[in-house]
Simulated scan of single mutants.
Amino acid sequence: MKIINKHLWKNIFSWMLPIGLIIIWYLVTSFGGTKLRFPTPQAVVVRGIGMLKTGELQSYILVSTQRALLGFLLGGVIGFLLGLITGLSVKANILLNTTIQMFRNIPVLAIIPLAIAWFGVGERLKIYLVAFGTFFPIYANTFHGIQSVDKDLLEMGKVYGLSKGSIFRRIIFPSALSSVLVGVRLSLGIMWLVLIAAETVATDAGIGYMAMTARGLFQMDKVVLSIVLYAILGKISDVIAVGLESTFLRWRK
């Protein structure tokens, strides 16, 4: 019972700041909204309900979510596999790691003109940009997790006669999993940040498109609604990442 109450209070305190910001938003816009040219929370909610009734909002969310997940899966799988290879193989580490670390410091916005020239302005561009952004956190954390495995455990596995496959399954992968999941959590956050930039490039659907068209028509309530949607989707992604950590790392407790 005490554990449940402690968990409940923890959740309540975690939402106090967001609720406080909404209250401040309401007070500021209610007394100075005209001068600030910023919509009230009520206006944003009304806009959202109206778009839900027409089905427009669901369509935008679905398109953006599909782009984000496809890009995350593409970048995440490649990043995880390369992280494994460079972490386990000294030769692959020497050959690949330095180059990948150099590419890691390239901003996503810097490669947009080149990506447009290569892939055009269709759906592939958005997916590849998200993949580029999500690749590096998963790669770096997978590589770091494998490199950080306790060498004494590896020696113990060899002493007990474990095969290389068994050593990987029973020692290396469980030891590195915590770091890998940190990379997944970071990538899920970066996924939405990159998608925002990607959806500003010649698109006709998605939350980014909604924000761009609303900005052109000076519909500030719609612009703020798109920001709120990105924040909510980012929070949902973080909750999923925490759930994965709780599930797969339960043994740590």
Rank of each mutant, 00 (worst) to 15 (best):
K6A: 03
K6H: 04
K6Q: 05
H7T: 03
K10L: 04
L21K: 11
L21Y: 04
I22N: 11
I23D: 00
W25I: 14
Y26A: 14
S30E: 03
T40Q: 13
T40A: 14
I49T: 15
G55C: 11
G55L: 07
E56D: 13
L57M: 05
Q66R: 15
Q66T: 13
R67S: 04
F72S: 10
L74V: 15
L74F: 13
G76I: 07
I78E: 00
G83K: 05
S89Q: 09
V90C: 01
V90I: 12
K91G: 04
K91M: 09
A92C: 13
L95D: 02
I100A: 08
Q101V: 14
R104C: 08
I106C: 02
I106L: 07
P107C: 05
A110C: 11
P113C: 06
L114E: 00
A115K: 06
A117P: 03
F119H: 10
G120K: 02
G122D: 08
Y128G: 03
P137R: 08
P137W: 04
P137H: 07
I138P: 10
T142Q: 00
S148R: 15
K151D: 00
K151E: 06
D152W: 05
D152H: 12
L153H: 07
L153W: 08
L154F: 03
G157R: 02
L162T: 03
G165S: 08
S166V: 05
I167F: 00
F168L: 15
R169F: 07
R170F: 09
I171N: 09
P174Q: 06
S179Y: 13
G183V: 12
V184N: 01
V184Y: 01
M191L: 15
M191R: 12
L195W: 01
A198L: 01
E199F: 04
E199K: 05
A202C: 03
I207Q: 02
Y209M: 06
M212V: 10
M212L: 15
T213D: 04
T213F: 01
M220S: 14
V223N: 00
V224K: 14
I227R: 01
L229T: 07
I232F: 06
L233F: 14
K235T: 11
K235V: 10
D238M: 10
L244G: 04
S246P: 00
T247L: 13
W251L: 14
